[in-house]
Nucleic acid binder design. Structure first.
Length: 805
RNA sequence: GCCCGGGUGGCGAAAUCGGUAGACGCAUGGGACUUAAAAUCCCUUGGGGAGCGAUCCCCGUGCAGGUUCGAAUCCUGCCCCGGGCACCA
């Protein structure tokens, strides 16, 4: 058609976005929505490099879902914000020598521009940044609520310490045990008083609730593994001096094979038990363990080291005296910090016993296994009265037997640790605490919040070993809120995961400065209806925000305890099979694609790459296919605008209803790639059918189905078809008629002995007898039946018949 | 090492309460239109074989077995790739 203007994405997209802004299309009535739908996606960290395709992939997938819900008649709230505190910003700022407070606004501006360009349905009235004092005032408020409730406490914990920097460094700055900035300087560990949140008091709730959450199963599995519940027993080994050493074990059935004990070097009893002769060696070992950085201390598969303490304890099962060692393969933070070593049935103990010549006693026999044999599918041997008992049964029996003498009890152990929120850094919200010599640590009164992070030039850590914030006396010294004496502010800032643990609560209430979240708003919009994000945050962010929500509920601030009713994990977009990263130099920037192809084509291309929930490898060889499709839609709509209304030919009508059905189901389940394929099939059929099918009745439903995917194009074509209001404000998701999705006749596969031998077309709903008769009439089928008697027939209604001869 | 995913044409992928493998798209090759090119449109394409031809036969979903009338799909044992955890007792 010569009067059809050509499709110019840049012009179409600019016009559509202008329209949405002017008419406030993306801004639901937060006060009185009819059908509220909170569509959340993970807010980005605004890096200096700008939005990359990984972000766009995630946001597009989430935005499609939000627009889909919008067209289904929901009042969709789709907010966006910036997670701008943290070590990444700070490190970047250090490298360019500019305060992050000056850099971040520029980054945010660039991000906002890109986010607008790709066409997200964001309600920008509710944008937030975690670095805004109006936001982190409430992050600090949350800290104070937990402090009041006894859920925030101080504890000594190890950090990485660089002796050159005279400063704490993060785990990711430790490279093979050396400082990232001083490759010749070994990192040590130091013990500092730090703030923790008592997330472990919520372990069972965090675990149990997972049963009831509508989350991607991969995410649930990651959370369960992270919590790491393991059931076992605590056994007591007594020393001649009367000390009781508790050990946690999941294999109490192997206690007869425990030939020595190992205490972590940090275990308090090491000091008490070590004999005079061993003292020097043990001290030396403890010192060595401590001088390691915490990263390499935890890296597995190291050669076993350890020292004998000179002391002995009695094996509660055998009564034998067994030696007590200390070794760093036992971790103080798990279980009791002590283990019973069963070298015959534990790989690590076996390795250690072999290295130090300790006895190895087999107490479990498993068919066909050599030592160390760790299987539980065996029976006990060398275990006195328990010989011959299967492992699993023996576990309970032995615990019960030892419990009679008070030497055992059942115990559940978790891997989850309390959450250390202290960061010895500059770029974060100051922890609102004032230390007073008389009163100890005192929370800053709520009316004094926020404790603003001062804009300082010398935010770089220096050799003084004092936090940059402590060098600013006017900030550092503050009156004790309790007694008025001069106190000192906490100079640590809080973890960025605390910032992001509650941002979804803030979005609907950003305009209120006198409360973190408005009660009415929160009741209306929360919990979040659907959260779509990456599994890279499956444990930390998602676990912490669940915990904070539970704590706030218990403290009376919220009426619900699970923040995200439905969570879906999207896949990761990679480049040539590898994660995109700056160091690999394989980061794909979306800007040039948006420039060349437009947002709609690029959005759809990303979704067509593969299943959204699996991700895929980015390559740009197929974009043209999406563009061709959109060109067809463009032409079709323009032709339809000038065409009259007429009945669709039956095959086109059938395809239309099939397409509505498939796109509705696939969009709901985030199977965007197949939804797009279905729309392509449909437009191909319409184009093939020609002018009789290129009508308003064929085109309008397609525009609505396509609108979540290519919102700008559909907005423009909707207008072209004469509609005054935005498609998102006025269109309703089309319904399909199940009866119209099926044809009168169906093709049936005919198999002989399971091999496909022909196809026949029969009326829908034909009986088995009719179909078999028709099948046997086929020459190609008869050839294979060849006079043999049909022993059996298998008939699948309207699909297939199999003749067994 | 343990826990999750996943291996299907030249490529991205469809199809899994077992039922016509390869939808849709890219890229091929051929053709139409054009002075020509671009764009567009039509046809072709898993491998092998038979036939002038409409067609027909054999093989084929990482490998080896198994269950079944029938397996990409279920079971057993392997191999490879990606992700997570990692001395967690």
């Amino acid at each position: 058609m010569s009067d059809t203007p050509s499709y110019d994405p840049q012009a179409v997209e600019a016009a559509a976005q202008r329209r949405w802004d002017e008419r406030h299309v993306n801004e639901p009535d937060l006060g009185r929505p009819r059908r509220p739908f909170y569509n959340l996606m993970m807010f980005p960290y605004p890096s200096a490099e700008g939005l990359h395709v990984g972000n766009m992939f995630a946001f597009t997938g989430a935005d499609i879902y939000g627009r889909f819900k919008r067209l289904q008649g929901f009042d969709v709230f789709e907010p966006m914000g910036f997670d701008a505190f943290g070590i990444h910003s700070e490190n970047f700022a250090l490298s360019v020598g500019t305060n992050p407070a000056k850099l971040i606004p520029q980054n945010i501006d660039a991000f906002r521009r890109q986010l607008k360009r790709f066409g997200g349905m964001f309600d920008w009235r509710h944008e937030l940044s975690t670095t805004d004092p109006r936001y982190y005032k409430w992050t600090q408020w949350i800290f104070l609520q937990l402090l009041k409730a006894g859920l925030a406490f101080r504890k000594k914990a190890a950090v990485n310490w660089c002796p050159k920097d005279k400063s704490v460094i993060a785990n990711e700055q430790v490279i093979n045990g050396y400082c990232e900035r001083h490759p010749d300087t070994k990192v040590e560990q130091r013990f500092l008083e730090q703030w923790f949140f008592a997330i472990t008091r919520y372990t069972e709730r965090l675990l149990g609730n997972l049963e009831r959450l509508d989350w991607s199963s991969s995410t649930l599995t990651l959370q369960r593994n992270w919590i790491g519940k393991s059931e076992g027993a605590e056994l007591i080994f007594e020393t001649p001096g009367g000390e009781r050493i508790g050990v946690f074990t999941t294999r109490p059935d192997t206690v007869f094979g425990a030939t020595y004990l190992v205490l972590a070097p940090e275990h308090p009893l090491v000091e008490t038990l070590t004999t005079q002769e061993q003292r020097a060696a043990v001290r030396e070992y403890q010192r060595a363990a401590q001088s390691q950085d915490i990263v390499s201390r935890r890296v597995g598969d190291r050669t076993k080291t350890g020292v004998f303490t000179g002391a002995y304890a009695r094996n509660p099962a055998t009564g034998e005296a067994i030696p007590i060692w200390t070794a760093d393969y036992v971790l103080m933070e798990y279980g009791t910090g002590a283990i019973m070593a069963v070298p015959a049935h534990d790989r690590r103990d076996f390795e250690f016993a072999t290295a130090f010549g300790l006895p190895i006693r087999q107490v479990v026999r498993v068919e066909g296994e050599t030592l160390p044999s760790v299987s539980e599918d065996g029976v006990l041997v060398n275990s006195a009265a328990f010989d011959g008992v299967p492992c699993r049964e023996a576990q309970g029996q032995i615990v019960a037997w030892l419990a009679e003498r008070g030497l055992a009890s059942s115990r559940v152990q978790y891997r989850l640790h309390d959450w250390c929120i202290s960061r010895q850094r500059y770029w974060g919200p100051p922890i609102p605490i004032i230390y007073c010599d008389r009163c100890g640590p005192v929370g800053v009164p709520e009316q004094d919040l926020p404790v603003e992070l001062p804009l300082i030039e010398d935010f770089r850590p220096d050799d003084s070993g004092v936090s940059p914030l402590a060098r600013h006396k006017e900030w550092y010294y503050a009156a004790c809120p309790q007694c008025g004496a001069q106190g000192r502010r906490e100079t640590d800032v809080s973890d960025t995961f605390l910032d992001s643990s509650w941002y979804f609560l803030r979005y609907p209430s950003t305009e209120f400065d006198d409360r973190p979240f408005d009660q009415a708003r929160t009741r209306t919009w929360l919990p979040v209806t659907t959260y779509i994000g990456g599994n890279e945050h499956a444990v930390l962010h998602l676990m912490y925000s669940r915990f904070i929500t539970m704590a706030l509920k218990d403290l009376g601030h919220l009426a619900f305890e699970e923040p995200y009713v439905k969570f879906r994990a999207h896949g990761m977009i990679v480049k040539d099979g590898a994660k995109m990263s700056k160091s690999r130099g394989n980061v794909v920037v979306p800007d040039e694609y948006l420039q060349k192809w437009g947002a709609d084509t690029f959005r759809m291309y990303l979704m067509f790459l593969g299943p959204f929930q699996e991700g895929g490898d980015f390559r740009d060889t197929g974009i043209i296919g999406i563009r061709r499709f959109l060109d067809k839609v463009w032409a079709c709509a323009h032709e339809a605008a000038g065409a009259g209304t007429r009945q669709l030919p039956p095959p086109v009508q059938r395809k239309l209803h099939q397409t509505i059905k498939k796109v509705s189901a696939d969009t709901e389940s985030l199977d965007y790639n197949t939804a797009i394929a279905a729309m392509m099939e449909y437009i191909n059929l319409v184009r093939e059918a020609g002018p009789v099918a290129t009508t308003r009745g064929a085109t309008e439903p397609l525009l609505i189905l396509l609108a979540p995917y290519a919102p700008h194009l559909c907005e423009a074509l909707w207008e072209r078809l004469g509609h005054k209001d935005s498609i998102f404000a006025s269109a309703r998701w089309p319904a399909f008629d199940e009866r119209l999705t099926t044809a009168e006749e169906v093709e049936i596969a005919v198999q002989v002995n399971g091999k496909l031998r022909g196809r026949i077309t029969v009326p829908r709903g034909s009986t088995e007898a009719q179909v078999v008769a028709r099948a046997l009439a086929e020459e190609g089928v008869r050839k294979f039946v060849d006079g043999n008697a049909v022993k059996k027939t298998v008939y699948v209604q309207d699909r297939l018949v199999n003749l067994v001869v």
